[in-house]
């Protein structure tokens, strides 16, 4: 689902159309993401234990064949919890990032196209939201409204939206100076039609990269909220929450801390590799188009 399919789908189209390929690091990143998505989809079928099942073995067991990552303070299987945690983490990340990119993209494109007083006012509001430290604002919202998975998603989306809007607006400013926008204006196209038909197709590449980069941020951010106890409620096998729960007993066993942390780190690195390679691919395409234009 999600990130990979979106990116890989359009990527495939590029490969067949232009014969351009991602770099090796990009493929590695893509493969990592793909593995996580597969685990998220099928994990519940083959995870050895249920996420909340206690005393699957003795507490603080080390790694063994029965418990590859050992057990935590309640004797829960750390491996199963990490595997089963993939799904909520990916779902929340994907939902939050998608919301932010769609909302921020739309705001950015429209403001960048209008470039009038609406843009001035809109961008100042964006500046104000950006200037508030994200974690503080997130904690404020969650503690004021309540604690649920979907609230976390909406909060993260709300925090990322203005940042995405800035990127989308900057990309739009490069596009609106083109004469095909003037041609559309002379034809009498509506503002919405110009934004969606003429501008959006030209910034999808940038928005795709933005999506990939933002989702790496979102994973860390959601993890941080979980760690601080403002994310998913306790029995949920959410990685940030798992690290927090195991932290106090780190002297007994490091596995419950290290396993979810490593899972998160590898995923974030994978996404970053992929995003980096994707943005280079898009840059190079732009260059190719430019040289061919000559």
């Amino acid at each position: 689902m999600s990130t990979t399919e979106l990116a890989a789908g359009s990527d495939k189209a590029r490969v067949t159309r232009r014969g351009i390929r991602l770099s090796a690091a990009g493929w590695l990143g893509g493969a990592i993401i793909l593995v996580y998505v597969l685990v998220a989809l099928t994990g519940s079928l083959w995870a050895p234990y249920e996420a909340a099942k206690i005393l699957t073995g003795a507490p603080f067991e080390g790694a063994s064949l029965a418990h590859p990552f050992g057990t935590d303070n309640l004797g829960r299987d750390v491996f199963s919890r990490v595997v089963l945690g993939t799904r909520p983490v990916l779902t929340m990340t994907f939902a939050a990032t998608l919301l932010a990119v769609v909302a921020g993209g739309l705001i950015g494109v429209v403001l960048g196209y209008l470039r009038n007083w609406v843009d001035e006012v809109g961008m100042r509001i964006v500046d104000i939201v950006i200037s508030i430290p994200t974690l503080v604002l997130a904690l404020l919202i969650i503690s004021a409204v309540g604690n649920s998975l979907w609230l976390v998603v909406v909060t993260v989306a709300f925090l990322f939206t203005p940042r995405v809007a800035r990127v989308a607006r900057a990309a739009t400013l490069n596009v609106v100076t083109n004469d095909y926008i003037s041609a559309a204006l002379a034809r009498g196209e509506s503002t919405l039609s110009i934004c969606l038909r003429e501008i959006l197709p030209n910034i999808t590449g940038i928005m795709l990269v933005e999506f990939a980069i933002r989702s790496a941020f979102a994973i860390i951010f959601i993890g941080s909220l979980g760690f601080l106890g403002f994310g998913a409620p306790p029995p949920t096998p959410e990685w940030g929450l798992m690290i927090n729960e195991a932290r106090a007993n780190a002297s007994n066993s490091l596995w419950p801390v290290l396993a979810p942390a490593a899972a998160m780190a590898v995923l974030v690195i994978g996404i970053n590799l992929f995003a980096d390679s994707l943005s280079r691919l898009i840059d190079r395409q732009g260059q190719n188009a430019a040289t061919e234009a000559k």
Binding site: T177, N178, D179, Y180, S182, A183, A186, R187, G188, E198, P201, N202, T204, A289, A293
Partner: peptide, 20 residues
């Protein structure tokens, strides 16, 4: 009126949407 008056621009690189 918009139909009867059309404009062609200087640089076709810029006047044609590259994504279409």
């Amino acid at each position: 009126l918009r139909q009867k008056i059309q404009i062609i621009f200087q640089n076709p690189d810029s006047s044609l949407n590259p994504r279409k």
